[in-house]
Amino acid sequence: MAGASLLTLLDDIATVLDDVAAMTKVAARKTAGVLGDDLALNAQQVSGVRAERELPVVWAVARGSLYNKAILVPIALALSAFAPWAVMPLLMLGGVYLCLEGMEKLAHPLLHDKEEDAAHEAELSAMLADPALDPLVMEAQKVKGAIRTDFVLSAEIIAITLGTVASATFSSQLVVLAGVALIMTVGVYGFVGLLVKLDDIGFYLLRQGGRLRSLLGRGLIHGMPWLMKALAVIGTVAMFMVGGGIISHGWPWLHHAIEGVVHPLSHLPGIGALARLLLPAILDVLVGMLAGTLALLLLLSWQRLRR
């Protein structure tokens, strides 16, 4: 009898773990849209820091990110337990915020002229060249700024994850939210640490000599700016796709409209499989761009009224 009870308990635990693993994979896939922007932003935050201080700065921001998620996960669990009706509105707000952030990036050349950007870069260069500037003070400011940025991105990740597991049991929600928070933090800041050291690895390979090492070293050094630009572009597209997907799933009529477009095309010979694979993502991006445009227009109107 005791053995049967133990086997039943183990079976229940295995079932729960299987469900948790499946939900964690779904949540990680949905939050992947935030990661491209997260990687690019955090790698940019440590620019201007001395090479030997890059990894300590990344580690300091990673600790701050864990503190952020340690605050956000209990809040998310409390919302799910005591105000489950608030999960979907918050998720929709997070989706709109993602779309707004993506549209602000696209509209940056229209909202800020080149002279303004050049003046900002000149001010930053002058500050870095000032011998009276304490590097540790500047480093602390960069860490604080990166942790503030991470709080917003972490809130997006936790909100999207909570929407994925909203109907699960409390224990499953806790395991999935904590697991996603830990995996995302380790994954993002581990990769950011690698990104900021790629140029140093390139210079190291150049100093080692040899044709192959020199070729790899130059490739890493010259490829870093292109990699950062590619991450920014991928992150922006992913923000529209994830944000648009959240909005379309939050409004059933819009979700059914997208399905109504995809379903007939998915049965066409030759292109059906491709349409079924790509068209939902493309339509989610378009929904995200439309939502981001409307949100940006509202934000600009509000800012103008306040002035």
Rank of each mutant, 00 (worst) to 15 (best):
V261K: 07
R207G: 03
Y189L: 03
I234A: 11
D200Y: 03
F203I: 00
G209E: 07
L182T: 13
G190P: 00
A232F: 07
L128P: 01
L124G: 01
A232R: 04
G202E: 06
G250A: 12
T164I: 09
I183V: 14
G245V: 12
V261S: 03
M138G: 03
L136M: 14
P131G: 12
D200F: 00
G219F: 08
G260K: 07
W253L: 09
L254Q: 03
G244V: 09
G209T: 01
A168E: 15
I147Q: 02
A126G: 09
L136W: 08
V186D: 07
T149L: 13
Q141Y: 12
M224A: 03
G145Y: 05
A178D: 08
W253C: 03
L194W: 13
F191G: 04
W253K: 10
E259N: 08
E156L: 15
G243I: 10
S172N: 12
P225Y: 11
L162Q: 11
G193P: 03
L254A: 08
M224C: 01
L133Y: 01
A146C: 03
K144Q: 09
I158L: 11
V262G: 10
R148E: 09
V143Y: 00
E121I: 05
G202A: 08
D130L: 14
H255S: 12
R148C: 02
K197V: 06
R211W: 12
F240V: 02
S125Q: 14
A238K: 06
K197E: 10
Y204C: 00
E121D: 15
A122H: 10
A155P: 00
L128Y: 12
V262W: 13
V261E: 04
D130A: 05
A159T: 14
S171N: 11
G187Y: 09
D130P: 02
I157V: 15
R211A: 11
G245F: 13
M241T: 03
A132S: 15
I147L: 07
K144V: 05
V180F: 05
I247C: 02
V165L: 10
